[in-house]
Amino acid sequence: MILPTLDSHHPGSAPLRSAGQQAETLLDWLGREGIGSLALLHGTSMGAEIALAAAARAAVPITRCVFDDGPFFRFPRPVRAVMAWKFWSIARRCRGKAPQAVMQDALPRRLSGDDPEQFRALWGAVCEVSGYLTAEDCRAMAGICYDGALPAFSEEQQRRFTFLLSEGEPAHTSKKRLLRTYPAASYIDRPGNSHCGFQVSDPEGCAAFLKTLIV
């Protein structure tokens, strides 16, 4: 199993540029490590776009792919510019602050849904990585979230895909686009959860679910 992460989110990492770039980095690493197959490729949030791009490029067989609350949108450039500014604003606002202080802001509260307290650890991670992000990184993040390509896959490949979608989360609105492109994939709506709420609120249950897909 492998879960893609993003550059620019830890000390000494390369700048973040695109989902395709991240996918190529991941696949290059698999090749160097001699990994010839994957039981599970699990992408979370923006990592879901990276996982999808990697699945389209991978030369190694992948048994199952899970895409958890990925924002699979394609919006015009002005929208992406606005969101890049919002991401950069959040990054600057989170620097040096405790999660509780950040969670009082309107956008974090909206992303945290009805039970923001369960996302304290997630916002703690945002506060931690915000110090490494640049404005250019935030523009790349907006591109990954809001200019996402949906590569073509065969019906057989689509049957290996599972999309986890939290009903109370904005990314859920990209489901129609996904259904049109990948009608043979599996879709699981989880009511009452916000962004990546399954793994955040019930990590053991999420891990058990992932295990059922590959055992």
Rank of each mutant, 00 (worst) to 15 (best):
L150S: 13
E155M: 07
E117C: 05
I144K: 10
R80S: 09
A135H: 06
W123H: 04
F119E: 05
R139W: 02
L107E: 07
W88R: 12
G96K: 02
R139S: 08
D137L: 03
G124F: 02
R109N: 12
P76I: 02
Q157K: 12
D105F: 03
R77M: 09
K97A: 11
I144S: 13
G124V: 01
A91R: 00
G70R: 03
A140P: 03
A84E: 01
A125E: 15
V129Q: 10
L133Q: 04
E169H: 13
S154I: 00
P116N: 04
A149P: 04
E136W: 07
T134L: 03
A152E: 11
F73H: 11
R109L: 15
D147V: 05
A125C: 14
K86Y: 09
P99I: 08
V129H: 11
G113V: 01
R159C: 10
R80I: 04
G131N: 06
L122G: 07
R80V: 03
M141Q: 12
F163T: 12
E155V: 11
S130G: 10
V129A: 02
P99Y: 07
A152H: 12
G148L: 09
A91E: 01
G70E: 00
E156D: 12
I144A: 14
L107N: 03
L122V: 10
G124N: 04
Q104S: 07
R92W: 00
R139Y: 01
E128L: 12
I144Q: 10
M141F: 09
G168I: 00
A121V: 13
P71G: 06
A106H: 06
S166A: 12
R120C: 11
E155S: 12
G168V: 01
A98M: 02
E136C: 08
R120N: 12
E136K: 14
V82T: 11
A101E: 15
C127D: 04
R93S: 10
W88T: 06
L107A: 12
D147C: 09
L165A: 14
D105P: 02
E117L: 13
E128R: 14
A81R: 10
V82F: 12
R92H: 08
Y132E: 11
Q104F: 01
A81H: 06
Q157M: 14
Q100C: 13
L122H: 10
A140I: 00
D114N: 14
G113L: 02
P108I: 04
A140T: 00
P71H: 05
D114Q: 15
D137R: 05
A84K: 00
F87R: 04
V126I: 15
L133G: 10
P71F: 01
K97G: 05
C94M: 08
A135D: 05
Q118Y: 01
A149G: 12
R109W: 04
P76H: 07
Q157E: 15
F75I: 01
L111A: 15
R93Y: 06
A121K: 15
Q157I: 01
R139L: 03
G131S: 11
L164A: 05
F87V: 09
P99V: 04
F75P: 00
P78H: 07
G70W: 02
C127G: 06
C138E: 00
I144E: 09
M141A: 07
E167R: 15
F161G: 15
R109H: 14
D137H: 04
Q104W: 01
L133A: 09
R74W: 09
A152S: 14
P116M: 05
A121G: 14
E156R: 13
C94Q: 00
R93W: 04
R95G: 09
